[in-house]
């Protein structure tokens, strides 16, 4: 009984932050992201016995989170608040130079502007360090499809960064 508790605590300690980031970039809203993570871990707690392979715990949690997100959309489609409106993003970048802060804001905005099919594999790679094969398994896609999506996603974000940085510099 206690072994279950201990294992669960380890999962929470290892993955809750990255799970939150993943949820945040999926839904674009901190409050909803926290709810999603809480719900995902509650489901994980109930179904912990199903997690046999310790090497797949991250992917397992990710799948639960994705399912929770899908359920959320079945229930209600909330009006999402622009992520840049939150004070937290200011405090998170407080130690950076103004140019770097601007760059981060552009990158975040560009991420949220991506269609979900491009955004999701990119988050999995950048935040979780998943390989294309692992992303393919989780998203039930071919590896080639994942590579194509990540390539296009990065191209789009990079273009946005180049364009908006140039435009910001021109305004100065």
């Amino acid at each position: 009984m206690m072994a279950k508790q201990k294992r669960f605590e380890q999962l929470v300690q290892r993955y809750s932050t990255d799970m939150f980031r993943y949820a945040l970039w999926l839904c674009g809203n901190r409050e909803i992201a926290e709810d999603l993570v809480q719900e995902a871990f509650t489901r994980a707690w109930k179904n912990l016995h199903q997690l046999k392979d310790g090497n797949k715990e991250k992917a397992w949690l990710m799948t639960i989170l994705r399912n929770e997100n899908a359920r959320r959309f079945q229930r209600v489609q909330p009006d999402l608040v622009d992520i840049e409106d939150h004070a937290w993003s200011m405090s998170a970048d407080s130690g950076l130079e103004p140019e770097e802060q601007m760059e981060r804001r552009i990158l975040r905005k560009a991420m949220l502007d991506l269609e979900e099919e491009y955004r999701e594999p990119l988050i999995m790679q950048v935040i979780h360090g998943f390989s294309c094969r692992e992303i393919a398994e989780t998203l039930e896609l071919t590896e080639n499809a994942v590579m194509t999506r990540i390539f296009r996603a990065k191209q789009k974000v990079k273009e946005a960064l180049t364009e908006q940085t140039a435009s910001a510099m021109a305004r100065l």
Binding site: M1, F8, E34, F41, W45, A92, M111, V126
Partner: peptide, 25 residues
């Protein structure tokens, strides 16, 4: 690296505690 830095936002304070409190043996 830049992209990763932008996306690695801090999690809400006390998130782990709240998760553990809600799911305790």
């Amino acid at each position: 690296e830049k992209l990763s830095g932008a996306l690695r936002v801090p999690a809400p304070e006390g998130l782990q505690d709240r998760i553990l409190a809600a799911n305790r043996q």
